[in-house]
């Protein structure tokens, strides 16, 4: 080995070491954040914390209304965004011709995914809360979150649909199937795990968002549970924001406990998505 190639190997070693160091530090840092919240928040978790409403200016009691509220908002988002997103994905993957209009649809989806969440909040306030007179409500907040989640669902579902081999479609059509039959009997079932993964990841984002619901449906403090879609609701992310910044003398443990519950909610969805994905990969026949 001559001098210059030795030097090159040293450069490579140093560079590889540097890269692996950066990558590991990033990952360690992420793990640290999660572990930190778990260890600090675990002490706050009790039956009362999960299953009762806050009192004493939120400095005591639990966070049940916020948990239920986030659950409602997530379900509301799913009900609105999943059919619409799936339909749009089916259109793009199975029907859309390769033309200018389709390109504009794709640009629109990319732009929807890039619009800041707080701008969605403004839009929801302008359209749903004020113009459509839904008021600050679960309905208005879910609609806002649904439009925000739509691009995530469309693009992941489209990707899953496109991953189904084209040959399956051709065979189905050649056997006398209509497009719709082909989609219903082969394409959708085969793409379902991928679609579900995308849907859950989209909803995970919606569940953790604060800015879009601040002016559209989230309440600062509501001891009782919402009873209708037109009620405002507490929500975990907004609650965490409130108790971390707006309430003086807030016990630190309640803050960590709230962060922990939100984290478990979100990471739980992430975990479910990963399980669906890896199971589907193992079972896949193509």
């Amino acid at each position: 080995m001559n001098h210059s190639s030795k030097k090159r190997m040293v450069v490579q070693k140093v560079a590889f070491a540097g890269m692996s160091l950066v990558a590991s530090l990033t990952v360690v840092f992420i793990i640290l954040i999660v572990v930190y919240i778990f260890s600090m928040g675990a002490g706050a978790i009790s039956f009362e914390f999960i299953f009762s409403a806050p009192y004493d200016g939120m400095r005591s009691g639990g966070i049940l209304p916020a948990i239920i509220g986030t659950f409602y908002l997530t379900v509301g988002t799913a009900v609105l965004a999943v059919p619409l997103g799936l339909g749009a994905a089916i259109y793009l993957s199975e029907y859309a011709p390769d033309n200018q209009v389709t390109r504009i649809i794709r640009i629109a989806i990319t732009n929807l995914s890039g619009i800041p969440s707080v701008v969605y909040g403004l839009f929801g306030l302008g359209l749903f809360v004020l113009f459509l007179r839904l008021g600050t409500s679960i309905l208005a907040a879910s609609m806002t979150l649904a439009i925000m989640t739509l691009p995530v669902i469309i693009s992941t579902a489209e990707e899953a649909l496109r991953a189904v081999p084209q040959s399956f479609r051709v065979v189905s059509i050649s056997l006398g199937g209509t497009r719709l039959q082909t989609i219903r009997k082969i394409v959708l079932p085969e793409a379902m795990p991928g679609i579900l993964t995308g849907v859950i990841l989209g909803l995970e984002r919606a569940a953790g968002e604060t800015a879009p619901i601040m002016f559209t449906g989230a309440a600062f403090f509501l001891p009782q549970l919402p009873t209708s879609l037109t009620d405002a609701t507490m929500a975990l992310p907004y609650h965490l924001f409130v108790i971390a910044t707006q309430v003086p003398g807030m016990p630190i443990q309640i803050q960590f406990g709230t962060a922990l519950v939100l984290l478990v909610f979100v990471l739980g969805m992430n975990l479910i998505a990963s399980i669906i994905r890896s199971r589907a990969r193992a079972k896949r026949q193509w």
Partner: peptide, 13 residues
């Protein structure tokens, strides 16, 4: 997947 409000909370704390 970490909600931005959780990162903000970590930032404050």
């Amino acid at each position: 997947g970490l909600p931005s409000v959780v990162l903000g909370f970590i930032g404050i704390i």
